[in-house]
């Protein structure tokens, strides 16, 4: 059996290359053999040991998932099989059960419903309120640079959801079994610890099969 991990970044829209870079850095730091690729087709998704849904616009990603034949089904299959998935910012929104926009309210957008959370989009305001600050993340430490760009936050989380980090009373990182969601962009901070946490999940699941 091939022991090299294969992780995909959903390559429809957003900061795809930045997640590829962060994952490669994490592989190197962990001294692990792994490959990270951009994926846009159903058949590519089914080979993966882990999937990252990047930052970008959640409405756009949802639309492109729905428009490509078979893509939605293959992402759902990955989630059902318990293959680790991490969503950063827009990626977390796409994974959520419910979402609404702070200003506009409900938007009819495709959500995967895998993370038992309700998300408020643009929760910290518009771009001029976007910010960076240090975060305390369980399992990582208190010095993780959080990059929040028109970021969402988690308004409510179901009983199976572990809260990894809060900022200003708002939930900004969660984990539910093999799914991780963050309001911020770990791929932009130059710190690969969040991606390492994700790769550990990917590696553990692969070893147990």
């Amino acid at each position: 059996m091939n022991d090299e991990l294969l992780i995909g970044v959903l390559g429809l829209q957003g900061d795809i290359e930045e997640n590829i870079k962060a994952t490669n850095n994490a592989f190197k730091e962990m001294n692990l053999k792994g490959k990270i690729i951009s994926v846009r087709y159903p058949e590519e998704l089914l080979k993966l040991d882990g999937l990252i849904i990047p930052g970008g616009e959640s409405t756009v990603m949802g639309l492109l998932i729905a428009l490509k034949n078979g893509l939605l089904d293959s992402i759902r299959k990955i989630l059902q099989e318990g293959i680790p998935v991490m969503g950063t910012c827009a990626g977390m929104i796409v994974l959520a059960k419910k979402s609404y926009d702070k200003v506009v309210g409900n938007k009819n957008q495709l959500l995967l419903g895998a993370l038992d959370i309700e998300v408020e989009r643009n929760s910290f305001g518009r771009q001029h309120d976007s910010f960076e600050s240090n975060l305390n993340i369980s399992g990582i430490g208190s010095d993780f640079r959080g990059i929040f760009i028109r970021a969402p936050s988690v308004i409510s989380a179901g009983p199976g959801v572990q809260i990894l980090s809060k900022f200003d009373e708002k939930i900004v990182a969660v984990k539910q079994e093999n799914i991780i969601g963050t309001s911020f962009h770990p791929e932009l901070s130059g710190d690969s610890r969040m991606h390492r946490l994700f790769i550990e999940l990917v590696s553990k699941r692969k070893a147990n099969r």
């Binding site: 829209q13 900061d15 795809i16 970008g56 001029h128 976007s130 960076e132 990059i147």
Partner: peptide, 25 residues
């Protein structure tokens, strides 16, 4: 500052980062 934590807006990273979120769009 928020809860005694320093927060920065309008940095190069936050501004260029915004543009990075538009990529492939």
């Amino acid at each position: 500052t928020v809860n005694s934590k320093e927060i920065l807006s309008g940095t190069t990273l936050i501004k260029r980062g915004f543009a990075h979120m538009q990529k492939h769009g």
